[in-house]
Design a protein around this nucleic acid. Sequence first.
DNA 1: GTCTATGCAAATAATTTGCATCATA
DNA 2: TATGATGCAAATTATTTGCATAGAC
Lengths: 144, 144
Amino acid sequence: MALPPDQAAHFTGLLRKAGIRITRQRVALMAVLTSATDHPDAIDLHKRTKAHEPSTSLATVYRTLAALEAKGVIQHHNFEGGGARFELVPKIHHDHIVDLDSGKVIEFKSDKIERLQAEIAAQLGYEVLHHRFELYCRKISDKG
Amino acid sequence: MALPPDQAAHFTGLLRKAGIRITRQRVALMAVLTSATDHPDAIDLHKRTKAHEPSTSLATVYRTLAALEAKGVIQHHNFEGGGARFELVPKIHHDHIVDLDSGKVIEFKSDKIERLQAEIAAQLGYEVLHHRFELYCRKISDKG
DNA sequence: GTCTATGCAAATAATTTGCATCATA
DNA sequence: TATGATGCAAATTATTTGCATAGAC
């Protein structure tokens, strides 16, 4: 389950670029974050990281997530129900649809929304530092 | 600090309409919810309710809030930082700006946003059951 | 060698629940 | 009087922290 050396080198580089110390646990977590496409929570990340690096504790996962977020490498979301869920900071900002039946998270982007929110805030004398825009949805079934 | 009888009758009516049993603690909490304009959290509601009805426990506040939410009388929000905050369900839906400096919550509404979110979801085969739209903002100061 | 990261277990914070008792319908 | 509500204290869940030790630079 350990990472091939070439891949490990890649994640080591990402950590170095983030400016935090390189440890086996962090390299493993970085690998997990990079390959995840499902917005996992801390518990999930811990499970997956342990598969690469069994010595990883949940406390270290939380501490490393906090460090990576402070460095702008990852971001977290607090969707309804359950704890925070994490993803790498995307090149292009997006918002989320949460499928209430499956719990799955779908990403979408809308420039109109981004513009509208800035307008709304400006009209009230505010500038937007960040926002949350989450749609809690159900699949439309054509057979009623 | 007890409520004047006429006001108490009003809140009793609201509880009866909601279809839940009437107790002194619930009448007091209903009074607090009705007069609040600041999206208080459970701890705040408990403090304020105790001013009317000192026998009220925090557990009862939580239980009553859950009952009122189930009946569609109130709704809660999980803004960043701290616990859930509550408000009566407004006649007209609105979203929120959170002032990051003061912690104050400002309400706004936008039909465009409502329409846009429905469109976005529909394009992906979803219908929106509810949403979260929160702008975390700072006041624009004209003196730089 | 120094300074930071780690594991573990205990501490927090917000909320929920079990249980015996009490109040409402 | 029967059922549902209450207070209190203990339980839960997600997360954070203190501390002694191990590991990175």
